[in-house]
């Protein structure tokens, strides 16, 4: 039995310098087995998606990488999304920096929690080195350049929010 997260994305704000509403394709779907939601958007040749990760899925992934349940629990029981960003054919390079994607809750803005904060915390708590490496590189990259023609990444994005929160995220 999966434990469900109750966090819902209220909206995603995409700031684009590339133009036009005309080519926007937005979708939302629900996994028929787990109930996890995926939000997707395609605009100006850019694809972006967020998929809810269930706590049991996150626990299983990291226990298989060498974590104990106790070590990964603070991360697994919070709000984590599988994130995909792909530059199919945008007019230019996408420069992504996680600090430029504010999350807002009830009008208050937060920055995404830096991956290095988690890495430092885990490294200092007895987690095996190979497990910390897997954790670090399983996260959505904190910064990246995506060139047109199909550069993309898939990774976990930690929102830094507790279960039950409603939030907006701005992708720019």
């Amino acid at each position: 039995m999966f434990e469900m997260k109750t966090i819902t994305i209220v909206s995603i704000l995409v700031l684009s310098s590339f133009s036009s509403y005309a080519d926007v394709l937005q979708t939302r779907r629900v996994d028929s087995v787990t109930g996890a939601k995926t939000w997707e958007i395609q605009v100006d040749g850019v694809f972006f998606s967020l998929t809810q990760l269930l706590p049991d899925q996150v626990r299983a992934f990291y226990v298989n990488r060498g974590f104990t349940l106790a070590q990964i629990e603070p991360y697994a029981s919070s709000c984590v999304y599988m994130t995909v960003l792909r530059n199919d054919n945008a007019p230019g390079v996408i420069h992504y920096v996680s600090g430029n994607w504010p999350v807002s809750v009830n009008g208050r803005h937060y920055e995404l929690v830096p991956v290095n904060q988690w890495v430092e915390r885990l490294s200092g708590s007895g987690v095996k080195k190979s497990a910390v490496i897997a954790f670090r590189w399983a996260q959505f990259p904190p910064e990246q350049e995506y060139r047109p023609g199909g550069d993309w990444n898939q990774g976990m994005l930690f929102m830094g929010l507790s279960a039950g929160s409603l939030f907006d995220i701005t992708a720019k």
Binding site: I9, S11, I12, L13, V14, L15, S16, Y21, V24, Q26, T27, R28, R29, W39, E40, I41, V43, F47, S49, V84, R86, W152, Q154
Partner: peptide, 15 residues
């Protein structure tokens, strides 16, 4: 662009 994901539904597979 401001995009609400409230009334959308289209299933897609793996990236």
């Amino acid at each position: 662009l401001f995009m609400l994901f409230s009334n959308l539904s289209q299933a897609v597979g793996l990236p």
